[in-house]
Design a protein around this nucleic acid. Structure first.
Lengths: 120, 120
DNA sequence: TCAATTGTCAACCATTTGGTTAAATATAAA
DNA sequence: TTTATATTTAACCAAATGGTTGACAATTGA
């Protein structure tokens, strides 16, 4: 059952809305890590950390390979890319507004110049 | 009271993790809108929509100007830019750009240092 | 075989979230 | 002034979240 984009964004943004989970992703940016590795920096129980990893996995941000009794986790940035693209649209919108502002200012100064020309 | 980057990311990502709120931002990308305007596309009560707007505002994604009995809302992409930059670091990692990965790790450790400084 | 390690699962708890309805507030219009 | 409009607030509810502890399963090492 493949989730729709909107639902994937829900899960991705929700997964990112927690400093522990963002920290785990930062750890994974260095390379693969076990659940214990990911849990190590935090004071919470392993069970709690395990839930965070599961949430990252459910969002599709992390993939897991069970190897013996350890679970090897890796960063999977596919859904993260969707989140990045979502925010990018609004960034571009904002940049566009700023461009429009620049354009407005340019037009204003151009008008002034034209007026000055008329006065010459 | 200015929030730390980490807390701003918490609030921003949490605000984005809901389709109603993302829809409201999409509406605001067309231009300013009142709370009623933002609520219109949804079946929920105005009170419920009002809470969503408040959450967007608290995250800093939306600014509000009270004008008579209406509240005019506008998109404020400042914190969105932070979220965009955060996802960008990991998205670049996924794209296999090792130089970007280095930069991401540097930024991450710098971020930690800055936050540690703030905590002292 | 027995003990330690890795991790999940179940049950529980407090807090947050996202919704409701009803009442309150403030402004605008008649 | 009275009424209608725009919005928030309060009280409430069910479900989700983020944590705990304790038991369990699987694997590894002694």
């Amino acid at each position: 059952m493949v989730k729709q984009l909107s639902e994937r964004l829900d899960a991705t943004f929700a997964a990112l809305a927690d400093p522990t989970r963002r920290g785990m992703l930062a750890t994974l940016a260095h390379g693969e890590a076990t659940v214990s590795d990911l849990a190590a920096p935090y004071e919470m129980s392993l069970a709690a950390a395990s839930k965070h990893v599961k949430k990252l996995e459910n969002a599709g941000l992390v993939s897991r390979e069970v190897k013996g009794r350890t679970h090897i986790c890796r960063l999977d940035a596919t859904v993260l890319r969707e989140a990045h693209e979502w925010t990018e649209r609004y960034q571009k919108f904002w940049a566009g507004r700023l461009d429009a502002l620049e354009a407005a200012l340019k037009t204003a100064s151009l008008e002034k110049k034209l007026e000055n020309l008329d006065n010459e």
